[in-house]
């Protein structure tokens, strides 16, 4: 099973998914991330999926769950780098990921978090 590393940068946590994750790894990532938000006092979480070629309803639900969890833990989550083909497929699938913030790339994701969180660093 692949465990996705969680990086810390200031009060942000950054997760970059580089491999095709199986469902088990997806669930583990979800738990690891929630634990990390609390233990490291993160204010923002960025999930980079620019390398992800397939997001099905299971992975899509994970993204929505992480965003909702972060909100409850007083942090903001942003999903960055979704590929056009993935976005079109998710819309067709009927998954609009309402409530999930998105940005084109990592840099714009960081800018968005600084903006919405108003985090003074």
């Amino acid at each position: 099973m692949d465990r996705v590393p969680i990086l810390k940068l200031g009060d942000l946590l950054i997760v970059s998914i580089q491999v095709d994750l199986d469902d088990q790894s997806v669930l583990v990532l979800q738990e690891d991330l929630a634990a990390a938000v609390v233990s490291r006092g993160a204010k923002g979480v960025i999930i980079d999926i620019s390398a992800v070629e397939i997001v099905d309803s299971f992975t899509g639900r994970m993204l929505a769950t992480i965003a909702a969890m972060c909100r409850m833990l007083d942090a903001h989550a942003v999903v960055v780098g979704m590929r056009p083909a993935v976005a079109i497929t998710l819309v067709e699938l009927g998954l609009s990921l309402g409530g999930v913030r998105t940005a084109l790339d990592l840099e714009k994701g960081v800018a968005l978090l600084n903006h919405v969180g108003g985090t003074a660093r």
């Binding site: 999903v79 976005a87 079109i88 819309v91 998105t102 084109l104 714009k108």
Partner: peptide, 12 residues
């Protein structure tokens, strides 16, 4: 509509 939703998913 789908185009607009897909663009949103990408962050635009």
């Amino acid at each position: 509509l789908k185009t607009v939703f897909a663009a949103r998913l990408m962050g635009a």
